[in-house]
Design a protein around this nucleic acid. Structure first.
Length: 481
RNA sequence: GGUCCCGUCGUAUAACGGUUAGUACACCGCCCUUUCACGGCGGCAAUAGGAGUUCGAUUCUCCUCGGGACUGCCA
């Protein structure tokens, strides 16, 4: 087999979302596994909705996931340009060729007319296909109407053959009846090519050998495109149609399900390696019980034939679990650099609470982090706490607390160096001094220091509050109990 | 209506035609930690239904049912 070439062609009509990201990932894994060439192109023939900022977002998302490309947007290549809007001449040539070879024809039917036909068909429970009304127009009729300035589109003329064959690596070879299709439009009235024409021309001229995409293309677009390849005389690529990703109500994943732009996952505190690992398992399985894979390992193990055919539901909880796992693998330094800017912005980075201070904290924090942002969230909760609320006061107005309080005060004051471990020891010692232990020690302490029943390890909370604040809170409490 | 896809615990998935149908997430217990989490142990929980082929079907075939996608001068 000659060198494999695959592509990822999003249209910049929105930010890159989960479905597209998985398509990009699988294309990438498939490509790298076979040491092929990965092409990243932009499909912006829809001038109305395409925006540059979305192109930027897609590039950013790809980089975040760790997906690089060999040819395409930003880096160019031998088969460029890689934006459809810059390839208009190519499309025109191909459209003209189809016209010249009698594989296409000019159609003057107005949108209104077509819509009426469709209505009519629907009413009669018939498939809403274009009738082929303009197929029989004579050369003179056509020239006349063009001269009159009548708007027109160009349609592909369905061949006489009965069926089209699609070779699919995931679903096997299928044949589709040509009769389920109709004379679809390949050029709009403004002269712009439509999707089916443009992708086909791009894929053919970019010499794409394998097209990996969502199942939603399988029976509609793919047969049309195969027909186009045949009419144009290009070799037909091999396809692989992946199962869809669904929301928890089993319908196509959309914003409604809380599906964010990929770049948002980063902002929300997800690690790209967790995201990629999780995504890979949406429709693919190594057929073993292993569950953690780096990108490198995925490339090595990815087999397109192991991609499932049934749709998968996006499970946010499992994504979080992967994230927590990868977060625990991070060094304290790595965690620090991930949140450093945030700490700075929030004013959590001071002379006293410096890098060293947080490095120590992260060592103890790792185990209960799910999202990177949990670090900041925890710190914020701690920093806004300013003493116990009166409704909680009765719970700690006990003889035990009364003896515990001075002991804590003393132990904390005497801590030589304020570290998570020394704080922990101080608490234990204070417990001994006051002869309080178990939940009689820890629960009141938690309530005193946070006003909550649960949260991160209390000694860590106390460490993060800093000595000064802790002593202040305890002293204040002494006057209330 | 047409075309096409899909159907194993709630979710993701595993199981040469022969397994007490496995694993992970979630959930629930217990242990560890003088809370939670982490970790350990255990539990709950699935082959949509019906025929057929077969000594034997989650696996192959057919039908039914259920779900989904597409049916644009969007991609």
């Amino acid at each position: 087999m000659s060198k494999l070439r695959v592509r990822f062609p999003p249209s910049p009509t929105g930010n890159l979302h989960v479905g597209n990201a998985r398509t990009a990932l699988f294309n990438y894994l498939f490509c790298r596994h076979h040491e092929g060439t990965f092409v990243f192109r932009i499909e912006d023939t829809d001038r109305e909705r395409s925006r540059d900022e979305y192109i930027q977002n897609e590039i950013e998302a790809m980089k975040w996931m760790g997906i690089d490309w060999d040819e395409g947007i930003l880096i160019g290549g031998e088969h460029g340009p890689y934006k459809q809007s810059e390839r208009m001449e190519l499309y025109q040539t191909h459209i003209q060729k189809l016209l010249d070879t009698n594989h296409a024809y000019i159609c003057f039917c107005s949108s209104e007319q077509i819509e009426e036909d469709r209505e009519e068909a629907r009413k009669n429970n018939m498939p809403p296909r274009y009738s082929g009304r303009c197929r029989g127009l004579t050369k003179d009729q056509i020239e006349d109407r063009i001269a009159k300035g009548d708007p027109y589109v160009i349609r592909f003329k369905l061949p006489e053959k009965e069926s089209v064959e699609v070779v699919d690596l995931i679903r096997g070879t299928k044949t589709f009846p040509v009769s389920s299709l109709d004379d679809f439009i390949i050029a709009r009235s403004d002269g712009m090519p439509t999707y089916n024409l443009a992708v086909t021309v791009d894929d053919a001229t970019m010499e794409i050998t394998h097209i990996v995409r969502g199942e939603d293309h399988f029976f509609g677009n793919t047969p049309r495109q195969v027909l186009l390849y045949e009419a144009l005389g290009y070799p037909i690529p091999v396809f692989a149609h992946m199962p869809m990703i669904l929301g928890d109500d089993k319908t196509k994943l959309s914003k409604r399900h809380g599906a964010f732009a990929i770049t948002e996952y980063g902002n929300m505190g997800f690690l790209p390696e967790a995201f990629v690992n999780y995504m890979a398992f949406l429709g693919w399985s190594p057929k073993t019980e292993e569950e953690f894979f780096t990108m490198e390992e995925l490339i090595q193990r990815f087999e397109i034939k192991n991609v499932n055919t049934s749709p998968a539901i996006f499970d946010y909880e499992k994504l979080k679990w992967y994230n927590a796992h990868y977060l625990r693998q991070k060094s304290n330094e790595e965690l620090f650099s991930m949140v450093e800017q945030n700490l700075e912005e929030k004013g959590f980075l001071t002379d006293e609470k410096n890098k060293e201070f947080y490095l120590q904290a992260f060592q103890h924090m790792k185990d209960y982090l799910v999202l990177t942002t949990d670090i900041i969230t925890n710190l914020e909760t701690i920093s806004t706490y300013n003493g116990i609320l009166s409704d909680r006061l009765p719970e700690i107005q006990t003889p035990e607390t009364q003896s515990l309080l001075p002991a804590l005060l003393q132990q904390f004051s005497n801590v030589p160096e304020w570290t998570p471990d020394s704080v922990l020891n101080a608490i234990r010692q204070a417990g001994k001094d006051a002869k309080v232990k178990g939940k009689h020690l820890w629960m009141p302490l938690r309530i005193m220091m946070t006003n909550e029943d649960q949260g991160p390890e209390i000694y860590l909370v106390i460490y993060l509050m800093g000595k000064k604040k802790v002593l202040g809170i305890l002293q204040e409490l002494q006057t209330k109990i």
